[in-house]
Simulated assay, not measured.
Amino acid sequence: MQYSDPAARRAEAERRLREETTLEEQRAQVRRTLLASACERACGPDADHAWAAFTAAQVAQQIRDERRAAALRRLLRSQEAVAEADAAYEACLRRRGRGAEAAAEEAADAAGRRTAEFLLRQRLGELHADRHRAAAARRAAGRVSVDAA
């Protein structure tokens, strides 16, 4: 494909925009379906719509919290978190001497948790930035297709 050809670039941008839009619509539908089934389990199948709507926010928050906890558990096992925990353990033992293993383990656990939380914030920030870039690209591609019309 010739990228120097404006019509070809525009067609490619429009094709990518359609694909991304379709994927995002599918993801949104999956999220709505998962949330609806979780609300139905929480409220019961014959629950009042107002009660289900009230419960939806709580269920969504619970799902978010569970996913965050699962991500933190995975990140606690990452190389970075393990290395920080090991370094904190050794530093505590050097500072307090042998016999302070309980304090060293506590320091290691805290260092691992801090590192996992940092990694999660970092990765969520990267995801947020990627989403903003993708949205800007979709808007730009939309302007290209409008300008071409």
Rank of each mutant, 00 (worst) to 15 (best):
E126F: 10
E106M: 15
T22R: 14
E105H: 13
R96T: 14
P45N: 01
R64S: 15
A71S: 09
A47R: 02
V144N: 06
A70C: 13
E126L: 05
R41Q: 15
F118S: 07
F54I: 12
P45Y: 10
A100P: 00
A104D: 00
R18Q: 06
A52H: 06
R32E: 15
A38I: 08
E117L: 00
T55C: 12
E84R: 11
S145K: 01
A108M: 09
A141K: 00
A87D: 07
A141P: 11
E101M: 06
E25K: 11
A140L: 06
T115G: 08
R138K: 10
R139H: 09
E12S: 09
G44L: 05
E40Q: 07
V59Q: 03
R31Q: 13
G99R: 04
I63T: 07
E101R: 03
R18D: 08
E12Q: 09
A7V: 10
R64E: 14
E101K: 04
A50M: 08
Q79K: 10
E117Y: 10
R77L: 14
A91R: 14
M1F: 15
V146R: 11
C39V: 15
S37A: 10
L124D: 00
D46V: 11
A28H: 13
E40K: 01
A140R: 00
E24Y: 08
R77W: 12
L124N: 05
R77V: 04
A137F: 04
D109L: 14
G142P: 03
Y89L: 02
R9F: 06
L119C: 03
A60L: 07
R121S: 13
T21A: 09
V82S: 04
R113Q: 12
A91G: 02
V30F: 05
D65I: 02
A100M: 01
G125M: 00
R27P: 00
A50I: 07
A116K: 06
A36C: 13
R77P: 13
A137G: 05
Q26N: 15
A129S: 00
E80I: 04
G112P: 08
A107N: 06
L34G: 06
A11T: 03
T55E: 10
A148M: 15
S78G: 04
L127D: 15
S145L: 14
E24W: 08
L127K: 15
A7C: 04
S78C: 06
V82K: 10
R16G: 06
A135D: 13
E126D: 12
E80N: 08
A88V: 04
D147F: 14
R138Y: 04
A141S: 14
A135K: 11
E14T: 09
M1N: 11
E105P: 05
A102G: 08
F54E: 10
R68W: 13
A129N: 09
G44W: 01
L72C: 08
R41A: 13
R138D: 08
R94G: 02
